[in-house]
Amino acid sequence: MPLQNGARAAAELQGKASASPPRRRGSAAALLVLRVATLCASACAAAVTATGGGALLGRASFRLLLAADAIVAAYSAVEAAAAAWEVARGDTALPEAVQLWFDFGHDQGFGYMALAAAAVAARDAAAAAAACGARGDAAVVLGFAAFAFMAMAALVTGFRVACFLATGSRFAPPPSSSASYY
C-alpha cells in the first residue's frame, strides 16, 4: 500500500519511510478560499431569490435556482470545514483516497447542478425582464458566480486526484535534487 498524506514525498526527501508529512498546504488553502467563496455566492443567490417575493418564487426556474443554490451552500459549508481541518492539521478528515474522490465527484455534480439552475433562471429572466427585475438578475449572476468558484475548486480537486493516482499522495512530487540530465 502506498504511503499516505504526503509521507512518500517526505520519505524520499529524508530517505526513510517513517517521515512525518510535509507542511505543504497550498492546495488546501486554495480550496478553503474557493469553498468559502462558493458558500458566499450560493448563499447570497439563495437569499436574493428567497426574498424576491412572488415575482421570483412564482417562477419555476427561480425556485430551482433557490433549491440548487441552497444545496450548493450547504455542501460548501461542509467542504469549507473539511478544508479548514486540512489546513489546520495537515491531514484529510476522511481517509485520503476517499476524501479526494468524494471532493472531486461532488464538485462535479454540484457544479453542474448550479450551472443548470443558473442557466434556466437566466433564460427565464431574459424572457420576462420586467417581472424579474434587478433581483432576478442579481440572483442569476450570483448563481453563475457560485458555479465559477465551484468549477475552480473542481480543477484543484482534479489536480489532487491526478497527483494521488500518480504518486500515492495528494501532493505533487517534489523536484528531484539528484536528477541526472542526458
Score class of each variant (00 low, 15 high):
68 A>S: 12
95 P>E: 01
20 S>F: 09
103 D>E: 09
96 E>S: 05
17 A>P: 09
75 Y>L: 12
15 G>L: 04
103 D>M: 03
63 R>V: 10
14 Q>R: 04
35 R>F: 08
66 L>I: 02
90 G>S: 09
51 T>V: 08
68 A>E: 07
87 V>C: 15
8 R>Q: 11
107 D>P: 02
62 F>E: 00
90 G>D: 10
112 Y>L: 10
8 R>T: 03
42 S>P: 03
120 V>F: 12
100 L>E: 08
59 R>Y: 02
71 I>W: 08
19 A>C: 05
5 N>F: 13
17 A>K: 06
115 L>E: 02
9 A>W: 11
2 P>L: 02
82 A>F: 15
14 Q>I: 01
69 D>T: 02
75 Y>I: 12
25 R>D: 14
17 A>M: 06
60 A>V: 08
58 G>V: 13
3 L>R: 03
95 P>H: 00
12 E>F: 05
57 L>V: 06
51 T>M: 08
35 R>M: 10
52 G>T: 06
18 S>T: 06
117 A>M: 13
97 A>W: 06
85 W>Q: 15
30 A>R: 11
59 R>E: 06
14 Q>N: 01
2 P>V: 05
27 S>F: 11
99 Q>G: 00
26 G>Y: 01
66 L>R: 07
86 E>T: 15
29 A>T: 12
88 A>S: 15
118 A>Q: 09
27 S>W: 11
42 S>M: 05
66 L>Q: 07
88 A>E: 12
15 G>S: 00
39 L>D: 01
120 V>L: 15
37 A>M: 13
31 L>H: 05
116 A>F: 13
6 G>P: 11
89 R>L: 15
61 S>N: 07
14 Q>S: 05
60 A>F: 10
4 Q>S: 06
113 M>K: 02
78 V>I: 15
47 A>D: 02
106 H>K: 04
36 V>W: 06
111 G>I: 01
40 C>K: 07
9 A>Q: 13
30 A>D: 10
23 R>A: 12
35 R>E: 02
28 A>Q: 14
112 Y>V: 07
106 H>Y: 00
57 L>E: 09
108 Q>V: 04
30 A>L: 14
19 A>G: 04
8 R>S: 00
22 P>S: 05
106 H>E: 00
63 R>K: 09
45 A>P: 05
96 E>Y: 12
96 E>D: 11
112 Y>N: 10
33 V>R: 09
40 C>H: 05
101 W>A: 10
104 F>T: 02
96 E>Q: 14
6 G>E: 10
20 S>R: 12
36 V>I: 14
99 Q>S: 00
30 A>W: 04
119 A>Q: 09
31 L>C: 06
49 T>H: 09
50 A>V: 06
93 A>N: 11
15 G>M: 02
